[in-house]
């Protein structure tokens, strides 16, 4: 399988008056062609920062301190802004959580989608409206021809999200980064959007990085899943591996908190997410970890590779390499 994206030791800091926020630290992972990689993490895990970093959209006070992002062999961090602009929106696209913030209420949605063509191919947006209608058909918007001329307020939440998705597939991208694309939607609409993304993956062979705080959702749609905690990677594995044989204590706790049993108490992970300005030394999950041992709070956890899996945990020392 081809690798479409290789991220190596990515570190991103934010320089705030209160201190330095270590948003991402030494994040490494691979993404293969045509695969859906789920990125799971609660707030403060750094998942959104990761999305912005790959798109090279990190702005002051944020800064990419070190690392490589190899997209089709080229390091995105070394490209000029012009070269990056040719990639953004065309080869790497993004879908956001709240379509309301990303659709201009005073313009018809067709015109807004056509702008994507305009930006990369020149001309006026009117030249592309028929292509937009085609896109709307692909993303399963009912009555696509008419909806090209609709205004955002005339569309439901699910439809608006489909409009955003159509923008992101306009140029048949290699990589789509979806940052919580369904969090604001009803569960049945969410299911449809998930099916749509699967469809797009099959149709265009695009890889998708699907970011969500809802691990149970990722277990449904992802091929592989990366679990993040407090700016670091905790574990990476296939969907089945994560679901049936989680290795990292955080993954286990997360799964437990998402499991509902008839007439029994709900589980929540004790403690709270650490501040990223002054993160605990050693493993950042150690203060809340039931299985923590002495070394966990002293040394950063090592990377343990088990076949295709990766786990960052002291407890697995000795297994794998």
């Amino acid at each position: 399988m081809d690798k479409i994206l290789e991220v190596r030791n990515l570190t991103v800091h934010y320089y705030l008056p209160q201190g330095v926020v270590r948003a991402l630290e030494n994040v490494s992972f691979d993404l293969y062609k045509g695969e859906i990689l789920g990125v799971a993490g609660e707030s403060g895990s750094g998942k959104s920062t990761l999305a912005l970093a790959i798109m090279r959209l990190i702005q002051s006070p944020g800064k990419i301190i070190s690392g490589e992002i190899l997209f089709r062999g080229r390091d995105l961090l070394k490209l000029s802004e012009n070269e990056m602009r040719r990639i953004r929106g065309k080869m790497i696209t993004m879908i956001f959580q709240d379509p309301n913030s990303y659709l201009n209420p005073v313009y018809q949605v067709g015109a807004q989608v056509a702008e994507v063509y305009e930006a990369h191919n020149g001309g006026s947006y009117r030249d592309y409206l028929s292509r937009v209608a085609e896109l709307f058909k692909i993303v399963r918007i009912a009555d696509p021809q008419r909806r090209v001329y609709a205004y955002p307020h005339q569309l439901s939440g699910g439809m608006k999200q489909r409009v955003l998705i159509s923008m992101s597939i306009a140029h048949k991208p290699d990589l789509i980064i979806a940052d919580e694309p369904t969090s604001a939607l009803d569960v049945t609409i969410q299911a449809e959007i998930i099916d749509l993304l699967n469809d797009i993956r099959d149709r265009y062979g695009s890889s998708i990085i699907f970011i969500s705080h809802d691990l149970s959702l990722l277990l449904e749609i992802s091929d592989r899943i990366m679990i993040m905690y407090a700016g670091r990677v905790a574990e990476i594995g296939s969907r089945d591996e994560i679901k049936n044989d989680p290795k990292h204590p955080y993954t286990k706790a997360l799964l437990r908190s998402l499991t509902y049993e008839r007439k029994s108490k709900l589980y929540s992970i004790p403690g709270s997410i650490p501040s990223l300005i002054n993160p605990p030394s050693g493993c950042r999950f150690a203060p809340r970890c039931r299985e923590a041992i002495d070394i966990c709070s002293k040394q950063d956890p090592p990377k343990i590779s088990l076949g295709g899996r990766v786990v960052y945990c002291h407890l697995l020392r000795g297994e794998g390499q």
């Binding site: 569960v187 049945t188 809802d214 149970s216 449904e220 049993e261």
Partner: peptide, 13 residues
């Protein structure tokens, strides 16, 4: 049935 088939929550049972 549609609601239950669309839910992603992990339910024991």
């Amino acid at each position: 049935k549609m609601l239950l088939s669309s839910t992603t929550s992990i339910l024991i049972g």
